[in-house]
Design a protein around this nucleic acid. Structure first.
Ligand code: MN
Ligand code: MN
Ligand code: MN
Ligand code: MN
Lengths: 219, 219
DNA sequence: AATAAAATTTAAGGATACTTAAGTTTGTAT
DNA sequence: ATACAAACTTAAGTATCCTTAAATTTTATT
């Protein structure tokens, strides 16, 4: 087990790439909670290994080799999440932290066996796509942040951000889960919070919460 | 996850303690496949932390703190083994290597949940005892190495050593598993190999193989 | 184009966990 | 009691992954 850090860097670069596949060094530092200097160090190592394209002061970009590695890590993480949720019965607010450690252990054969056991899931418990053994990433339904909906629009939850456990616990409590329909009743001009209806019950969601829930807009 | 090495040292000290709880430094080096010098280094660190009693040139001994930590690691390892065997369906020759990595990840809560799911198993797939949450180690039935049996004695397999996958694959192939009865038909003076009967079929086992299978002697 | 601010790298250093080679201590054999 | 080999530790050095502080490059502002 020598590559835990490297693997985390590669995953994070993959997950934070923009449309052109570029990432800023400092964004990686922030996501991984390390200093900018640590990132520079690691980027040099990853470049030496041919995992990334990197010129000092410019952004970072995965090479095809690096992207393959990164996608496999994301795959491992998300399969662990589904496994922990469906087989072990952990709630969706617990699986990310456990998977973050487990993703670095267990052979690829074990991951493949778990995937088969789970009947080849396409998405993790938060709606994120799971790259296949061959590196193919399932297409998401077209979705937008709930905060973008106008009054009286309805959306079906496709994905939620998984990095804050309390956020996940909270939205579960008010009935939000994948595939649930949410109707926006009112957008408050005061603080841009929104009043939504879920299962016939009304709730006020802060803008920040609404920005972390992604829905397919229903006509 | 910063303690992987330390955890491996503690487990190994625990598993290799003699009747007086003592272990020789070089035995740890051999088991962990590192240099003797590396062991000396780590022993100093573990002593500083109060996990072991250690005086240079004398043996090592776990303190109660160290023993508690070590037993928990052994518990984690063995629960992972049972889980991988029973839930994921891995054969007994695959579980040790996977568990050796997984034992360092996953919260204690996850381990406890898996244990419950497995209905609190007392022994792992190789017959090794699983310490409880409270640190209580289940008693093994009295057993001896198969190599100690005399001609015409019968034994029931209680435990097998799990550190060599090919050994496990081989003995599975000839029908040996936990609870299986084995009869010693003949001990060959030539090389101390033994002729055994399993399910009515005869097989010759080398002394080395017989030394790694432990049986309860049947009258 | 000059200047200031922001982003990023370099420099120096620390902890962990190894390595090999060179001592030191211990126990055994004569 | 001495000598010697085996067991063990110390010394010196390496790789990884991190830190803070200082320097540099880029970018935005005037
Ligand atoms: Mn996740
Ligand atoms: Mn993760
Ligand atoms: Mn094992
Ligand atoms: Mn192990």
């Amino acid at each position: 087990m020598k590559n835990i850090s490297k693997e985390d860097y590669l995953s994070e670069i993959y997950k934070n790439s923009d449309e052109n596949g570029q990432v800023k060094a400092n964004l990686i530092a922030e996501k991984l909670q390390v200093s900018n200097a640590a990132v520079t160090d690691m980027l040099k190592k990853l470049k030496r290994e041919g995992q990334i394209k990197y010129e000092p002061y410019r952004g970072v970009e995965l090479t095809s080799k690096g992207k393959e590695y990164a996608k496999n890590m994301v795959r491992r993480h998300r399969i662990w999440e589904v496994f922990l949720h469906q087989i072990v019965g952990l709630p969706w607010d617990k699986v990310h932290d456990e998977a973050h450690h487990l993703e670095h252990s267990g052979s690829d054969e074990l991951i493949n066996k778990m995937e088969e056991m789970l009947n080849f899931p396409q998405f993790d418990p938060h709606g994120d796509p799971i790259p296949s053994k061959l590196g193919i990433v399932p297409e998401q339904k077209h979705n937008v942040a709930l905060s973008n909906l106008k009054q009286n629009q309805k959306g079906v939850v496709i994905r939620v951000n998984d990095f804050d456990n309390n956020f996940l616990i909270y939205i579960s409590q008010i009935g939000i889960k994948l595939k649930k329909e949410i109707k926006v009743c009112e957008v408050l001009n005061f603080d841009k919070s929104i009043l939504v209806e879920i299962d016939g019950k009304k709730n006020n969601l802060s803008r920040t919460i609404a920005e972390n829930i992604f829905v397919e807009i229903k006509k």
